[in-house]
Amino acid sequence: MNVFRLAGDLSHLLAIIILLLKIWKTRSCAGISGRSQILFALVYTTRYLDLFTNFISLYNSVMKVFFISTSCATIYLMYVKFKATYDHNHDTFRIGFLLIPVTILGLLINHDFTPLEVLWTFSIYLESVAILPQLFMVSKTGDAETITSHYLFCLGLYRALYIFNWIYRYYFEGFYDLIAIVAGVVQTVLYCDFFYLYVTRVIKGKALKLPA
């Protein structure tokens, strides 16, 4: 464990807490893409299947349980409890266009052609594009609530910090995992225009408005 990975995990944790608070406090999931949340739930359930078979540390297990449970809770809140506030009209990104290529890629490029490994690889590739429906929805609605932009910022920051973690591990532990690194870079790059808008607008107290 190093400071970059810990900061990344905490940023990820914070993002999920912000999202749950936003939905719970405002009793609304307006502006949130349910499709992205479905993809995230898929990411965590396919990646953390080794939760019961491969104990790494208490921290690791607790975080896995947290991510799986909160992603499912978010879907419950969006599609059941606050279903009336879910914005169907703007959450229209075809997730089949993501799942099919990611599945094919997971079957073709992986470390080991075993079920657990292919599912882990699928999860890594899927996570890198899972935010697209959300970013697409923000671009369609033209703006996002400030709390939603904080959620997106923390979520994007988490994998950006993981990149520093991988650089650190490469130089100090002689460790690298190209699949995780390439997917992590793609994932972070997808946030770049959002990061720019967040820093130039939200930080200055303005609302996140996308150029029409």
Partner: peptide, 10 residues
């Protein structure tokens, strides 16, 4: 350098 799997990462 051995390419390993980041299974200790979340």
């Amino acid at each position: 350098l051995v390419e390993q799997k980041s299974k200790d990462e979340l």
